[in-house]
């Protein structure tokens, strides 16, 4: 019995030193993830007039009561350009809620007012926050801009249009993919797929001055089909003509013409992007038969022909093209 008392005492001692961690807990706070939703600190925007061309940016700051999905949607008043920023952190800040002037896709923003809408899709009865900023300078493109059709037709360009087609540069900021102007085709050609084309060349002749490496260079152009749309109905056909022998003239019989076609599939502005090195492959992945050295050499590119074709049985065909630009390492970011 004496032993029993001794051991019972020992047990009591052990129980007396048990841990009880009242301050700390493991893992992220449940309140942060599953607690009631509230806006702890109201939305603030670092500047209401922003010149993206000068490297300025719009920073959204806000503190929420919990981690929850939030969506910042920015929409251009005239261009209709849209930029969406998505997150689910409790605090919106420079780390996760910054707009540098880009759009999700074409069209791009113009010098215009941009309306901001912030929503919390997983929080029932949560408020929708509204605000706006004024864009006073546009985001600077990174890359080699060939044309955005803002300066009119180039001196060395060549146009082709069927007799029933109006194919030319049109200017309307509300319709352009970027800036104010774009190239448009509109007409009915009941006897042929060919609608019209524009051959773009450097103003002073020679090459476009692109880098030599085709493996990290991307060709980009905005394309919008409005009538006769669909992957069986209309497409843009591109000819990339390289001056393999350096004589300043493209000779089809002895130099490389890489052909690339892109079929329309939407009524919206579409970004066509293709790595220059991949231009040597056709749609089936086979190497194209060309008449030059067969190498994709962007530094020798001297003309790009943009050719719109549409199914003659479908009536009128209409399409726009805009902002032809080469970028390094990645496709163009509108």
């Amino acid at each position: 019995m004496k032993n029993l008392i001794i051991y019972s005492f020992l047990v009591s001692l052990i129980f007396g030193c048990r841990k009880d961690d009242k301050i700390n807990f493991d893992g992220p706070s449940l309140a942060d993830s599953f607690g009631p939703f509230a806006i702890i600190q109201d939305l603030s925007i670092n500047q209401y007039e922003v010149d993206f061309s000068a490297g300025q940016q719009v920073v959204f700051s806000m503190e929420l009561s919990k981690n929850t999905n939030w969506i910042i949607q920015i929409e251009g008043e005239n261009s209709g350009a849209v930029r969406t920023i998505i997150g689910n952190e409790r605090i919106l800040s420079l780390d996760n809620a910054v707009w540098t002037g880009g759009a999700n896709k074409f069209p791009s923003f113009n010098l215009e007012k941009a309306y901001i809408t912030i929503t919390f899709p997983n929080e029932a009865d949560s408020p929708t926050l509204l605000d706006s900023v004024l864009i006073t300078g546009l985001k600077q493109d990174q890359g080699f801009l060939i044309t955005s059709f803002e300066e009119g037709l180039g001196a060395a360009w060549q146009q082709f249009n069927q007799t029933t087609v109006a194919g030319t540069i049109t200017c309307d900021p509300a319709l352009a993919a970027k800036g104010s102007c774009f190239y448009s085709w509109n007409g009915t050609v009941g006897w042929d797929w060919a609608i019209g084309s524009v051959t773009i060349r450097p103003p002073a002749g020679g090459s476009f001055g692109l880098p030599a490496n085709a493996n990290n260079l991307f060709f980009n152009i905005a394309f919008k089909a409005l009538q006769n749309v669909g992957p069986q109905n209309s497409f843009l056909l591109f000819w990339f003509d390289e001056d393999d022998n350096g004589d300043g003239v493209f000779t089809l019989n002895s130099e490389d013409r890489f052909i690339f076609e892109y079929w329309s599939n939407t009524l919206d502005w579409d970004l066509i992007s293709r790595k220059y090195a991949d231009l040597k492959f056709d749609a089936d992945g086979n190497v194209q038969q060309t008449n030059g050295n067969g190498l994709t050499e962007p530094s020798k590119l001297i003309s790009i022909n943009v050719f719109f074709l549409a199914n003659p049985n479908n009536g009128n065909a209409q399409a726009y093209a805009d902002h032809l630009i080469f970028t390094l390492n990645e496709p163009y970011q509108p």
Binding site: K19, D21, K22, I23, F25, D26, L30, S33
Partner: peptide
């Protein structure tokens, strides 16, 4: 539990 999980 001796320590909370995500809460005290």
């Amino acid at each position: 539990e001796s320590r909370g999980m995500g809460t005290n």
